[in-house]
Structures are given as structure tokens and as C-alpha cells.
Design a protein around this nucleic acid. Sequence first.
DNA 1: TCACTCACG
DNA 2: GACGTACGTGAGTGAG
Length: 934
Amino acid sequence: MQHLFLIDGSGFIFRAYHALPPLTRSDGTPTNAVSGFTSMLMKLVEDNTADHIAVIFDAGRRTFRNDLYPEYKAHRPPAPEDLIPQFPLIRQAVQALNVACVEMEGFEADDLIATYTRQAREKGMKVTIVSSDKDLMQLVTDGVELWDAMKNKAINRDGVIEKFGVPPEKVVDVQALAGDSADNVPGVPGIGIKTAAQLIEDYGDLDTLLARAGEIKQPKRRQTLLDNAEAARISRQLVTLRDDVPGVQPLETFAKALPEIDTLSAFLEEMEFRRLLVTVRGRHQAAVSEPMQATTALDAGKALTVGGSRSGQTVTATAPAATAYELVQDADSLRRWVAAAHSAGVVAIDTETTGLDPMTATLVGISLATAPGHACYIPLRHVSPQDQGDLLGGAPGAPTQIPVAEAAGLLRDLLTDRSVLKVGHNIKYDLHILAREGLTVTPLDDTMVMSYVLDGASHGHGMDELARLHFDHDTIKFEDVCGKGKTQITFDRVPLDKALAYAAEDADITLRLHHYLKARLFNERMLTVYETLDRPMVSLLFDMEEAGIRADAAALLALSEDFAARMTDLEAEIRTLAGEEFNVASPKQLGEILFDRMGLKGGKKSAKTGAWSTDAEVLETLAAEGHALPARVLDWRALQKLKSTYTDALIKQINPRTGRVHTSFAQTITTTGRLSSSDPNLQNIPIRTEEGRKIRRAFVAAPGHVLISADYSQVELRLVAHVADIAALKQAFHDGQDIHAITAAQVFGVPVDGMDPMLRRRAKAINFGIIYGISAFGLARQLGISNGEAKGFIDAYFARFPEIKAYMERTKAEARDNGYVLTPLGRKCFIPEIQGKNPAMRAFAERAAINAPIQGGAADIIKKAMAALPAALHEAGLSARMLLQVHDELVFEAPETEADATATVVKRVMEQAAILSVPLIAETGTATSWAEAH
DNA sequence: TCACTCACG
DNA sequence: GACGTACGTGAGTGAG
């Protein structure tokens, strides 16, 4: 399929101009925009896969839109003084790069882009519009996407929905309502993008909405819409792009051509762009002196530019001429692959299994890759595709396979050879699978974790997504091989040819990702974070998951039954109080009973669905007013939660083979570097209520053993004191004082001795607020006080600890400048919405930015402690096993006789994990159950 | 699949 | 001046 690139020239110019400091040629001509524009365009021309490319400019200020609405773009300030002389030079740059260049009087660049996009689509071409201008988002459709060249990010249909809340075909309707202050499109006053999207969502389109505006519930909004219907219609005309601009230069003239080296050099020389000149000459030299690098179907001829300032070097995936995937069905072939891995020193490995749960899935086959494009698949437990299938093998029609035990034997030494690095994508999963075949694997690299260290939660880290993102390659999907839904088959029933293509590709991609990500870790200075914090977690988390924690099924069952009985009683009572049958578990039905039928006041409706809110806050207010029904519902809900989420669910999660619960720790999910736990989540086991604690009591040590819980004391507040460098707070921690009492004394001006507990409680809430990026609203809600009072507390806090204000401003600026903030140990936490236009979203992002170094810093510290602990315990001759991590707490299981010694080592290692300007304190507890140890 | 609710740090 | 809020997660339920 042919591929057209349309570059929004004006957008490019302004971004280049604002991104770069003022630069001038030796004759004084300003050149910063020319320089930025030229290097962006060069990069685009070199990197992309286009066969047609053009830059589109605006021709003049007046267009047909000014006839529709004279005020259109009337408030635009003129271009900056030092940009004006650069416009003609930029057109020269386009010519020097041998790229087509189009503009037309009376039309905006956007209209030309719309016109060419339509023409290209009619010819079946794919289109990429290089711009992040929201006005162009209406053009996105199948085969048409926007490309944000600064962020290196594609904006597809989903991206448009994220921005506008509606799909591309409805964007003009939303813009018509919301208007645009930059372009002076009026829209309807008081309606922004969010409201507009909601209205269009509700009514389908603008015309229907305007026709039915009388039905809108909110009186004020109804009236403004009725009053401004005409403005909305004109606005829509203004924002709708013309895709029928007549007499445009034909698309065929955009065919991509290489730049003339002499013309380009002359231009760069004239502009005095020495760095670009060197680059261009260097490339030219390389191209004439060396034959083309042979490449594979994957990543054909495409150079991967590796980011970072250290070298700016280009990493190209080197590969043989074609992908050669081999099916390995006999021992000799496998021996050859093992030898190849030994000589390569690095091998990518992936397992195929019968399921997704690492503790129960069974190995079906293994794939290996030893060089890009050079991969194999070793089927081990495939059955014939028609077979009803068990895992015994040897059934009629089962394919030829190396016996599993023999294959394991051939691989064993390779997998533990210290001179051969084993690379996997989410290799923790494969470790579980291989462990059940008696195989251990070391040393390790994990490309999923490497990707997370580099790009955080800015995108997902699945292999399919990374292949698409970095190699522009579409992998074979699991669903393509196994189907989905009811007809899905397990991998052991997949025919070997399809299994080979799928499985070998996964290993191949993993190896290529490893090459690419390793270079990026170095160039972007993230190698230390990866090596010291995240890489050691891979095998450690594997050990923890494999260990599991013992759960007392009988105790859980007894709790379940107790909860069930009490819920039945409550249900009867609730129905009597309500005077009718209803589903207590349905917030919708409950809301209708409380507020519509019983007519209680004080209800809130949700913004999204207009349903009555019945959350704990609402019900507690009603209960405090003396209403019995909401009070009973609260009791019922508490029991329902404990039973369904915990007791019932945990019983099901006890592994029959081990009698223990094996959670799964995710290492690449959170925005701050924390871990997360699922299947089941063991990081949210109840503790705050007595009933909940009973569940924690069911987590117990094996016979003859104890559980040791060790948790950091006030770790996040200590990090606040450290990163914000708050002298008074640091002193208080050094002196080992009660930090909330000290805060109260400072903020409220009272002595610590004989302090009103209420004041300490308030100070504690303020301290939490600081960690969360405080707002008066949030603090007021937490404490049940007025916004004004809360603001007073915050001002008093800032006055007493002025450093905190500076930290907050500094951190917000850091996020705005970079799109991420750094933890004290150097982890990047990405805050993409910080540049957002919506003030609420931006405020949200700012609070997240303030919180991230604190929460993330604490996560880094406990990771350092975890990484150091196995060796420390081993050296002390102790056999304790780490079982759980709950953000600031570690849980161990140790022989009773080693309890004290283990607690001592754990405490020491945790406290020494990082040297901050405040001491770190860890507290330990020992008991036979988790509840008592904590 | 989404919204709501609620468990944890 | 409107936006709609404390930070970070995972899971169960109802409803469409």
C-alpha cells in the first residue's frame, strides 16, 4: 500500500521556533526556526516509510472563512518579529530537501491537507498527517492518522476520542459547540470540550441537539443553547475543513525523491548549520562506500534513531537477508541451537503454554532466538489439532517431538550458564513454567521491564505494542493462531507450522527489542535504574510468587459463613425498612429507593450517568441524620465486600498443590514505580476494621515457622522532608519526634504537651495532603470542614514550611518542561497530561507530578532493600523467604528459631537501603499470623 | 465493557 | 471564571 505524508508546515514552523533558543547566522539573520524545521524535516524524510511526501503551508491570512465570519482568527497576534524573515528560508529548506511544497491563496493549509487526504484515500493510499493540530483530527479515519513529530506519537481514532471525547466524524460538532479562543471561533458560551462531547454523545449530532435543545434539563444551559444556535452553526462551518479545494497540484508530483547532496549541502552551508552538514556528509560517505545492509522483511531498511543526548547515534537492526524460522523436532537440531546460543552469548527465550495463569499453565513448547531473524520453535507437548487432547503425548496423530525430559536435559546447562544472557519479554512468567519442568534460568534480562524503565506508563509494554511502536511491525496475534471466545483452542492444539510462525517471531522480536532497548538505556542514562532497582526484582518476584503464603482455608470458610448469615439478617431488616423487595447490591435501585421513593434529601447525582450516588460518604451522612436504612446498607456492604472480594475469593485462590496463595506481582504497571499485585491482590487485604482484620488472621506461617512483617515508618513523609529539603521537618525526624504533633504545633501555634487530639488529627490530614499535592477542596472534604478553613490551614503550613511551596513549583515546572519528573534515585515518572488544555486535567496532572517523586522514591527505596536482602540473609546463615511486598512493608516467613535474627537483619537492610538527609526507620513484628505480625 | 463502590498503602 | 478535585492500585457487582 502506498503511503502519503502530509506535513502541516505552519505547525512545524511554530513548534520549531518555540522549541529553540534564538539563533542567528553570522550576518545577523535569525535562523532558529529554520534550523529546527530543517532538522525535523530531515529526520522525517529519513525515518519514514512514505513514498509520497509534501509540506503544506498557509498562503495568507484571508481565506473564505473570513467571508463567513469576519472575526475569524481576528485576534491572532502577528508573527514574532524575528520569525518573519525565516519564512522564505524555510521554503528554501523544503526545496533543498527535494520535498514538494504546496500553498494556495484563499484556503488554509488544513483545507489542502483535507483535500489531498481525500484524494489519497480514493486511490487506496495510507495517509499520515504530520501535525498535532486538533483542527486536523476530524480527518482521522481508517488508514489516516496524525503524527506528533515532537512527541513521536501517532494520534489515531482513540487519540481523537481521548482529546475530544467523541470519534473523528463528530469532532466538528464538538468544536462547533466548544468554540476555539485561539481561532476566535465563537461556539456556545459556557460550553467546553467536555460538555460539548457529552451533549453530542447524548443527542447524536449538532443538528439534533439544536432541534431538541428545549429538552435539556439544566435551565441555564438550555437557554444559552437556544440563544446561540446560530453561532454554533456558523462555528461548525468555520471548523469544517474543505476537502474539495479546486485546481490543486496533482498528488503524483509528491513522489518522494532523495535530496541532491550538493544542493542540500549548499543550503546548509549558507545557513551555517554545521552539525546538520556533518550528518549529511557522513551519511553520504557511508552510502557510497558501503553496500546496503541486508535486512529482513521485518524492519526493512529502516534505521532506528536512538534518543538521548550522549551520542545521538543511530542503531540499525542488523539481520540476515530473510527471517529463517526453524522447527526443532529432534535432539541434534536442538543441540545445534544450544551451541549457537553459547557462541552468541545471548539468547531470547519464550515459552508457549496452555493458559495464562503462571502457577497452573503447562509448558507446550519453547522458542529461542540467537540473532535477529534467526529463531526456532521446539514443540514439546503438541497434540494433533483434531485430537480431543490430553497432555500425555503420543496420542494418535501427535506430531514428532523431542521428549520433554530429554529437551529439558539438553537446555539445562545453557539456561544456567553464567556466560549466556537469557532474554525474555515478561520472563517471570516463563520462569514459573520452566520451574515446573525442573529448569532454572540465570542470568536474565527482561525487555518488558527495560521498556518500563525507559518509558514508564506512557504506553503499554506488551510485545505486540512495542513491535508496532519501535519497529513498525505487526506481530502475529495470539487470537490469529488460537481464535477467541468459545471456539478458542489451547496452544497445544495449534498446527506446528502456525505455532512456529507465532512462537519464533516472539523470540525474534524479543531479541531485537533487547538490542534496541539496551542501547536506549545507555543513551538515556537509565541503565543504573534498570540494573540496581528493576532488574533484580525479576527473579526476586519470581521467588516470592513461587513461595506464596499459607492461607487457612477452614478459617476463611468459617468467616464466609458467618458473614453470609449476618447478611441474610440485614437483608430482611433492609427490606422491612424499605417496604419493598430490591437488590441491595444495586446502587441504582438503592438510590431510587432512598431519594426518589423515600424522598430523603442530601443526595448527589453522578456527572456521568445522572444516577444517584450511594457511596459510603452519602450513606454515612444519612445515617448520622438518624436514618436506619442507609446505616444497615453500610453494614451489609462491609460484609458483602469482605465476603466476595476476600473470604470467598481467597478460598478459590489457594493452590491445591501447595496449599498456599500465589499472587502475581506486576512490575510494569504503575506510573510511579510501585509494584502492583493481582490474582489475587494481596496488597489490599483488610486491616482498618476489626472484621477485616479477621481475614488477615487467616494468612499464617507454615508449621514451625513464623511470619515477620517489617514496615517503613512514615517513609513518604520522610521523602517529602528530603526532596523538598524542609529544615524543620528534617530536624523533627532526626530527633525522632511525633511528626504529626510537631506539624500541629507549627501550624496551629500550640505546644506539643497537652495538645488537643483533634489538632494532631488535622495536622496528620495536612501531611497526607502534602504528599498528594494538596488542594483546599481535598483537605476540606477529608476533614469535613469548609474550603476556606482548609485554605487557612494550607497557608499556615506553607508559611511555617516555606520550602514545600518551592518544591511544588519546581516539580510542576520540571513536569511541564520534560513531560516527566524524576524520583531521588533517578526513575522517570511520566506526566503526559501536564500540557493538557483542560484546567481540571492539568491540575490533576500537577498533583500527580508532586506526588510522583515521593511515592516513586519510596518505591525505589524498598526495591533497593529487597534487592539487598536475599544476600544479607544468606550471609547471616538464615533461611527466611520473602513472601510479600505491600509498598512500605515486607513480609517474610522464617523458621521459629531464626525469628529474632531474621528481624534484625531485615530491619538493618531496610534502614540502610538508601542514605537520605533524614534517617529511615523500619519496624518489625513477629507472629504466626499476618494480622498479629503487622 | 463501563460505572460504581471499596479494600489497601 | 469554569473546570471538578486530594496520590497510587485491583476486584466484585450491576447494568446495558
